[in-house]
């Protein structure tokens, strides 16, 4: 269970699969691992299986495969005691006041830290006596996020946490997530926003059509591939993105680099951005050369 970087494995997911009604295979035996204190980001286009992965981990949907938490088979008790979850749909009880909602939460689950919730809400000036339906969408997200982060959990599972948040608030929470990881808490973060993934991830997994196509850290991915602009055609088996009508960005695996430069000396090396890598991988255009 000990990783190369000396971090203990917190969550081990083996061959997770999910088939919805009418035979739609949302997850096709995906496996990955989240370590203690790690921020693990799930990326992928819409419908790739990010939310289904999260719901399967939490037992919200039934799925096949095995999930281990610190070596023990995951069950509902472990989930309730050790996980804290922010769903994609950040819906709370609209008719309750902020204060009464918090009171109810704390009365049912002692894992929530009342002082911490209040600290977050004071910071963003969200008052206890306000009815939730009167809060802006951004403040509803902040309230939900504050509740989730105030739970004393070991794994925080956040599905699109920054929806509706302004840049300053986003920055605050991104820093907060980093602080959590310094404290040894792990975060599974699902997002569409690549800059957030680049900023805070320790590792990412890119999902496509229910499969993990890549699971690595972003720096490794950047060194794994080289990019070249070329105004002609390379063989079909080279990954290609259109840049202009005539120019193409070709992504080539680092180890094949020399060979291609010899064959196509007019190629101009381009600095490869994470967005380019994501476009190739998530778009299904990554070819194994």
């Amino acid at each position: 269970m000990m990783e190369a970087n000396n971090k203990m494995s917190l969550l081990q997911i083996n061959s997770l699969k999910k088939v919805y009604r009418f035979g739609h295979r949302a997850l096709k035996k995906i496996s990955f691992e989240i370590n203690e204190g790690e921020i693990f980001v799930l990326l992928g286009p819409n419908g790739a299986g990010k939310t289904t992965t999260i719901k399967s981990l939490l037992g919200i949907v039934n799925s096949g495969g095995e999930i281990f938490f610190k070596g023990s088979l995951l069950n509902n008790k472990i989930i309730l005691e050790n996980f804290s979850f922010l769903p994609e749909e950040k819906n709370l009880y609209e008719n309750m006041t902020v204060g009464s909602l918090i009171k109810e939460i704390v009365s049912y689950n002692k894992n929530f830290d009342l002082i911490k919730i209040r600290d977050y809400l004071n910071r963003f000036d969200i008052q206890n006596n306000k009815t939730i339906k009167k809060l802006s969408n951004g403040n509803k997200t902040i309230l939900f996020l504050s509740i989730v982060l105030s739970k004393n959990a070991e794994l925080y599972i956040l599905d699109e946490p920054m929806a509706n948040l302004d840049p300053l608030t986003t920055k605050f929470f991104l820093n907060e997530f980093r602080n959590f990881s310094y404290e040894g808490k792990s975060i599974l973060y699902s997002t569409h926003i690549l800059s957030h993934a680049e900023k805070i991830s320790d590792r990412i997994a890119i999902l496509r059509e229910g499969k993990i196509v890549v699971c690595d850290n972003i720096d490794n991915l950047k060194t794994l591939y080289k990019a070249y602009v070329y105004n002609g055609d390379l063989p079909d088996y080279v990954s290609k993105i259109s840049v202009t009508d005539t120019d193409f960005l070709y992504i080539i695996k680092e180890e094949m680099n020399e060979q291609y430069l010899k064959d196509f000396p007019n190629m101009i090396e381009e600095k490869l951005g994470f967005e380019d890598i994501f476009e190739i991988i998530a778009g299904g255009n990554l070819k194994n050369v």
Partner: peptide
Amino acid sequence: DKKTFYFLLNIIDRKK
């Protein structure tokens, strides 16, 4: 309907 179950499941389990 209102997708509030996810919030509830953070606090109490399905049996409760």
